[in-house]
Design a protein around this nucleic acid. Sequence first.
RNA 1: GCGAUCAUAGCUCAGUUGGUUAGAGCACAAGAUUGUGAAUCUUGGGGUCGCGGGUUCGAAUCCCGUUGGUCGCCCCA
Length: 437
Amino acid sequence: MAGFQSLPGFRDFYPEDFSRRQHLFRVWRQSARAHGFEEYDAPVLEPLELYTTKSGDEIEGQLFSFQDKGGRNVSLRPEMTPTVCRMVGARAGALKRPIKWFSIAEFYRYERAQKGRLRAFNQFNADIFGEAGPEAEIELIALLIQCLCGFGLTKDDFSVRLSDRDLWFFYLEALGFNDAQARGLLSAVDRYEKMGEDAFKACAEAPGGLAPELKDKVLSFLKIRSLPELEAVLAPCASEKISARLDDWRKVLAGLAAMGLGEFVGVDLGVVRGLAYYTGFVFEAFDRKGDLRALAGGGRYNDLIRKLGYSDLPAVGFAIGDVTTGLLLEQRGLTPVYVSAPDVYAVLGGPAERAAALGDIRQLRAAGWRVDYPFKDLAFGKQFKAAAESGAKLALIYGGDELAKGVVKIRDLTDRSEREVPRHQVLASVRTALSGP
RNA sequence: GCGAUCAUAGCUCAGUUGGUUAGAGCACAAGAUUGUGAAUCUUGGGGUCGCGGGUUCGAAUCCCGUUGGUCGCCCCA
């Protein structure tokens, strides 16, 4: 293979691929606007410290980072959250609350590609700032659901699993674990789905160990699948903190049920989400059948904006990736058929006819119609074939006879009917033919 | 960072125990066909067989290395 290839994990978007990607973006953008979110964008390249501050220095191994010619340590963005926090934090005092923002952007992570994961990918991000109550979660989860239903997916195709990092910590505290032990247990919970009970081995072997009866309590907690179960399990260790969290749980689930979205959402405390900056509800959207990685994920991060050096501002957000979503739509046959058809195809008799047609073509195009014509003079038969293959609805025929009579022949390529119209009425006739039923 | 597996035309693939000038279908282009359509027929362009080295009289084929794809591990914001 001569020449060059794209870099590993990066994709070329040929027109058909590009159109599929645009379909994702279109649905996401439309859903966000319908929910009252405003669109923003930001630089692809950021200071490296923006990410190490948020996630720790270890994160650099996963980043496309380098030193620029001015000696600055920089990184391609691996996610939008720190950037949007910076933007909102910088103008927090001036922005009307609640702040509901979304973006569609490309991100870069220096990792080995595998199914559903590449080095360059697109994400839809939506966040709400300035609202500490569960109303923000309701709004975002509703948006997330619409961002998937907009493709034709249903409650049988995916579900949103709702969990709560704060509640985990409160529960583990009530069971007598200290903070470090609780963190270890949560990372085991995160691995449980993949590894089963082996996930708890490290905790059991740690100093102090993990008593079997406590391990059973943790296991049964992460197997909870409904609000009543959750309330029952927490009843014995009720505290002010825990009952406040349960109030929020009731509000979120009731709000989503009121929206008619109750069947999309389930309680699942097995969802923890890797990095530890989430402070309350966390949620992920999953394919119900199949073994795809998460379609979307998010949660509340009330401390992050302060951590980045701005004032306190509660925040909750989520992201959907284009790679896994695209795979799921492909599996479900929900990828739209690619069509690239002009509205009008002009058939040109020869050089004189071409000259006459070009003026009309330019007018039709200025009016917004998509018009094509052959670059080279071709036999009529060939041109009609080309017109039909182009997928155009109308052919405009500029032949010697028509030119002499001062008319253009309009052929409807669907029903093969033809009629002649005066040259100066071409635009009006095309408009009528294309907008009528 | 680690492991498995694959790589022949734009796509899907064939290519015998190593043996002349590497093939097919689809796609693309031209012609049959200079006033009317998805068919048919004919013809054509397109390959340093991913790349580099080695073995051999001879390599798409065997060996080593390398790059890339796919799948998994680590990680997953």
